[in-house]
Design a protein around this nucleic acid. Structure first.
Lengths: 216, 216
DNA sequence: CCTACCGATCGGTAGG
DNA sequence: CCTACCGATCGGTAGG
């Protein structure tokens, strides 16, 4: 929202003795990262089509043409945001499933999956996955295919857990439809969740468990 | 998607004896309606920002400036699409709740509410409400306020039914969070439902009931 | 509802 | 990563 004034980089005077690639490479990575975060935030708030590459550049103190030094197109930037989001989500999910070592019961596993999913969607600064959820149609078919793999990877973790719950009578609806409906219920929280009022993520997780699962 | 060629209206030769307002008024309403339907379809498929008013005009055989004869701005057209959607949804919901006369049990009522909601979202040609769900942020605050009333009206019907189900033990999670999560699960079906394959709306309704409600 | 048009903005690029 | 720029497109309007 607030465009920081373009920071005038001091004219580089290259040191000759040292290779000094550290600063340059880190800087490069930093600027690319900065663009990724700014784009995620703006795409989430304003939408992809309503956000100009100039908006994004201004948000990190660059000039209008500079994002194209880091990303070949606006589309590619959007896709990079989504891929970043899926990699983070997959990593968080894997971490959650390995909490306290043991796999535990299916009931414990589903709680971990739901909690990790809420954290991915609602955690402070987690704009990447929400962008993916709501700007999917802005991708071309090639990009969609590459993301579909990551999504399938992510969703695959849910199936065995839901199957176990179905077998034990905790879940009555068909497994596939259950997965779609449950993930939908969670994904939609992006639209109404407010960190500053209403239920906490803990309460949300409890409510989801209570809503979806039977006692035996 | 397919732009019909602009239909050249034959030069009007006004009859003098008759008032002939019927044809003119009906035509006017038809053109406005045509714009509303075309806009809903395009906004749903491409998104609001990615759809130009020229796209919409072409879809109904008008020239680029003509939509602005019917709607004061692109925003106003979006808002009209959403209001149309909510009016239809509210009417369908009211009809569903009065089926077969009697109110029936809460279990029957929730089934009617869920089924009507799916029909509103997934029925053929029902693009209005999906546009509302996914383009909410493109409205200004005044338009949001006017729509919020319609949405509150729509959601109000769910609360007493969910409260009855909570009291009878069919619903375990808190009523307010239940409503948010259930509507989210249903709303998300817009993203994955495919009339041509997978579950039918009937099966979806059964699965939702089985997922959300306990036996007693 | 068409014609003809305007000012603004946009994604992207060449060349440094 | 900046400077300077291009062609295309967009929402909207005047005047009929």
């Amino acid at each position: 929202m607030i465009a920081t004034a373009p920071s005038l980089a001091n004219p580089l005077k290259r040191a000759r003795g040292r290779p000094r690639k550290t600063e340059e490479e880190r800087d490069d990575g930093n600027r690319r990262q900065a663009l990724l975060f700014a784009a995620a935030r703006l795409f989430r708030v304003q939408g992809f089509a309503a956000t100009s590459t100039r908006d994004i550049a201004a948000a990190v103190g660059m000039h209008s043409g500079s994002p194209f030094y880091h990303f070949k197109s606006k589309d590619a930037l959007l896709c990079a945001v989504m891929e970043e989001g899926m990699h983070r989500a997959i990593a968080r999910q894997a971490r959650a499933l390995q909490e306290d070592g043991a796999p535990g019961t299916a009931l414990l596993q589903i709680r971990r999956l739901i909690r990790a999913h809420f954290d991915t969607l609602l955690g402070p600064g987690n704009d990447f996955v929400p962008v993916m959820l709501y700007e999917h149609r802005s991708l071309n078919s090639q990009q969609r295919k590459s993301l579909a793999k990551l999504q399938a990877n992510y969703e695959a973790a849910w199936t065995p857990v839901l199957e176990a719950l179905h077998a034990s009578g905790h879940l009555r609806a068909p497994v596939k439809l259950s997965r779609l409906l449950i993930l939908g219920a969670l994904n939609w929280s992006v639209q109404w969740f407010d960190r500053k009022k209403g239920a906490s993520v803990d309460e949300l997780t409890d409510a989801a468990i209570a809503l979806f699962l039977k006692d035996s």
